[in-house]
Nucleic acid binder design. Sequence first.
DNA 1: GTGAAAGCGCTAACAG
DNA 2: CTGTTAGCGCTTTCAC
Lengths: 336, 336
Amino acid sequence: MSASRQPRRVRLKDVAEKAGVSVGTASDALSGRGRITGETRQKVADVAAELGYVANALASGLRTGRTRTIGLHRQSPTEQLDKPYFRQFLAGVLEVGQRHDYDVSILSANADMPRSTAARVDGVIVVDPLSDDLRARELMLSALPVVAGEHLPPGLPECEVVAVDHRRALSELLAPEAARGVTRPLLVAPDEHSGWGNLLRDVFDAWAADLGAAPAHGYVRFGGWDDKEGFREVLQPMLQADEEADFVLVSSPYGVLAGLEFLAEHSPTRAVRFASAGPDVGGLLDHVPEVGFVDLPARALGAACAERLIELLEAEAGSARVSGTTLIEAPVHLPQ
Amino acid sequence: MSASRQPRRVRLKDVAEKAGVSVGTASDALSGRGRITGETRQKVADVAAELGYVANALASGLRTGRTRTIGLHRQSPTEQLDKPYFRQFLAGVLEVGQRHDYDVSILSANADMPRSTAARVDGVIVVDPLSDDLRARELMLSALPVVAGEHLPPGLPECEVVAVDHRRALSELLAPEAARGVTRPLLVAPDEHSGWGNLLRDVFDAWAADLGAAPAHGYVRFGGWDDKEGFREVLQPMLQADEEADFVLVSSPYGVLAGLEFLAEHSPTRAVRFASAGPDVGGLLDHVPEVGFVDLPARALGAACAERLIELLEAEAGSARVSGTTLIEAPVHLPQ
DNA sequence: GTGAAAGCGCTAACAG
DNA sequence: CTGTTAGCGCTTTCAC
């Protein structure tokens, strides 16, 4: 390797000189700003292309205060790459990020590690905001624009939200069950730190009330999506204690599997119906067509979050927008 | 949301003033540079902590020419998140990146899309360099330090390489097979665009030659790791045409499955042994203990690449290092 | 050992 | 419509 680090990158000044204009002119000729430029614009563009000019993002960022980078926050993100949900969410964010020429930076979850790197992002997406996530709270209290992917749990500061329309999806999923008749519905979902968990309980309880049935609740920790054992530990005692329980909604396909397993082992004749409200992983429930489920569109949600955040960022002048919620639809697989 | 964008971030100047020193002094008090600072150093550090000062990476980057960001390049990276190999590689990169306070930016693979964002990275890791990847070639020809994750195929410019010690892993994997006796060994691996594929063929052929056996080769496209059908399409004619073939090495566990399936369907009595040299995905081969495999440590490889790249970047003064190769070990699962 | 000042490459005011 | 100028916040000579 040679000794020289960089072979003198071509600067805007170089382009300007060669095009016979000033840097100022060259600048907004290229970025097509206000002062419309007749043919000078074309000329500058040509020279820029010829020289292979590419703007120094650091310099323009320093000047404008924006980095064209969005941050993605989730608890211990490194591990989470193994979770299909997060992975697909990330893929969605990356896709629209690249389309809009934004970089995506996966934020370090260790709040303890001093990030000198900090504040290199224009805004942040918080995947699955949890009320006991201190770093998320910190981000939301900061001046950075924040978009939450999924509903906010009580206790977190307000911010822009993009979420799945769980209310609609669930009502679609639950309707056929009600038609079959349900006396004692059980729900196992993430605890109160999760906005999603809370919403599930809300909708579930309302639905049960409509039926004149008394619902029962079980709780799992939010991150335990694929923790079948965890689900079993919660479900088993509930099913055992409640002989009349005839319908179970869980927050993950693994919960369904756990429940089915338990029944097969202990009361093969007992008739209990299951449904999943959580992110499906390809095919897990394909072999049990009698189980309906909502398939959370992680990728679409990630894309929508990025879209919304970038929209916010480009909106320029703090247009005094109150934080709002954008809903996206989730496909519902009804039971056979 | 309020209208004001940023609440006036605390600048180095603020720290300097409050500490009663100049910015210059404050600067290298904090970064512990040359001019040793007795107690001024402590004072500045205290004030900085008190004010919650965090350096503006853009500004320092502009000045120093380094961004503390490393890029990760792979063909169509968005899709690739679904591949366990890439995902784990990425996890490794992220992990050491965060440890060294480097951001990781997943580079856009579309060479056609003009990236104004470009050159915001100090160096690049190219995962699985392929000789027909134009973007990879471009990166390697640029002035940016590049580390290739896996061996270079012929045709690509030289660069620093971090790779799995396939030679060693394979010899370990193949040894017991030779002991069992092999007359006609088959290899199905990525084509000549992949350095890894080439290496597999090298080692495989040498091993076969040692045995006095004539090897046969089949080719698959590099990205088709989980394309079982693709493997079958290559393997089936080879096995059919070659009645004596008694050992098959493939570049993916899916290749093994494809081969076993074919045999089960068409010649259940035929004795052919299989082995996989490619990235294992948890458990795919657990049910066939008679099949040995190398389990490519994607995460460790990613980590090693990042480690090496950062080392290169921090090495400062272009210490005229010739590009070299770092090998890491892969676990080998011998057949039962 | 420390302060002052120049300047990284760019954009945004302000003149003309 | 275009040129000139002043910084963005930091690091880095160069004086003292």
